[in-house]
């Protein structure tokens, strides 16, 4: 049963499959991936199936470090500057931190998505093809000649493309979340001294304000758009950063770290828009 190889190109906007909380960094990507068992190649050679998931995890691991590092580096630089600027006159460090965390989460996820998706898909397709061929060659029933027939090549091509397309979103989401979780720790470090200055000022009964910034506003900025001291800022734009994460569905959003000092990792896991996944397995691995 040979099907025509499909062109791996999606032109339809895809609805994100996973919510941020669906991704468990401890269990890896394997539980998130369902391999379509009805692929002709897998029906004919069920042995191939066993190597696919571990292979995908390896492919993700290879791209993880450079992808995460690059996304974090750019995001931290931008977020640090913009937050320091916008919150220069803000005395409450929890508001500043909440905004920084929401912006970091959103922008790191976006940068990781756009940085990793294409190279990861290319790598999956290339290497999966090699791996499947290697497995097939080891099977006693398959001759080298048989593997190189057009029919066989098409069947492998079709399987590789389908498996890669089906897996790519989970893989990218895994890299995105890894990047985000690292970035959230790092942005706290970068802004620690800023938070400290504000705490200190409050302990001494003062309200923190950057006098240089204040002077600039009074000299240069029209009254309407000046940032006011001590007033609670309208934080809409930063709340908006927290309302969705690029590449993830909006259900099961992590909560904003407004009061508690730790990220709320214990938020109940919600499985959304996704079928064919072992819920128990995922949940059990989620307890940290």
């Amino acid at each position: 049963p040979v099907q025509q190889p499909v062109v791996t190109q999606t032109t339809q906007p895809c609805t994100p499959q996973f919510s941020y909380m669906d991704i468990n960094l401890n269990t890896g990507v394997m539980p998130l991936i369902t391999v379509n068992e009805n692929l002709p190649l897998l029906i004919q050679f069920p042995q191939v199936k066993n190597v696919i998931k571990p292979f995908i995890q390896t492919a993700v691991n290879e791209l993880l470090k450079p992808g995460v590092e690059r996304s974090i580096k750019i995001t931290l630089m931008t977020v640090e500057h913009i937050i320091k600027k916008d919150f220069a006159l803000e005395g409450d460090e929890t508001r500043m931190r909440s905004a920084a965390q929401q912006m970091t989460r959103n922008m790191t996820a976006g940068m990781a998505l756009i940085t990793c998706r294409e190279p990861l898909l290319v790598s999956l397709v290339d290497k999966l093809k090699t791996t499947i061929n290697t497995v097939l060659q080891k099977l006693p029933v398959v001759s080298a000649q048989y593997i190189s027939t057009t029919q066989m090549k098409d069947m492998i091509e079709y399987a590789v493309n389908t498996i890669s397309q089906d897996a790519i979103e989970a893989c990218v989401a895994f890299i995105q979340k890894t990047a985000v979780e690292d970035a959230l720790v790092e942005i706290d470090k970068r802004l620690a001294s800023e938070y400290e200055i504000r705490k200190q000022a409050r302990a001494e009964g003062r309200l923190h304000k950057d006098t240089n910034v204040l002077a600039y506003f009074h000299e240069r900025m029209p009254e309407q758009i000046r940032i006011k001291t001590g007033s609670s800022q309208f934080n809409v734009v930063y709340e908006e950063f927290g309302r969705y994460i690029p590449g993830f569905s909006t259900t099961g959003m992590p909560s904003a770290p407004s009061v508690s000092s730790e990220m709320q990792q214990s938020t109940p896991l919600r499985i959304t828009n996704f079928s064919g996944i072992n819920t128990d397995e995922l949940c059990s691995g989620f307890k940290r």
Binding site: P16, I82, V237
Partner: peptide, 24 residues
């Protein structure tokens, strides 16, 4: 120098990243 403006512009940029690849 106004509050949130640059953050809003960056938000516009990042929000279309999912539409870049696959291209739609």
């Amino acid at each position: 120098n106004s509050f949130g403006t640059i953050a809003a512009l960056l938000q516009e940029i990042v929000s279309i990243y999912p539409a870049i690849n696959p291209p739609h």
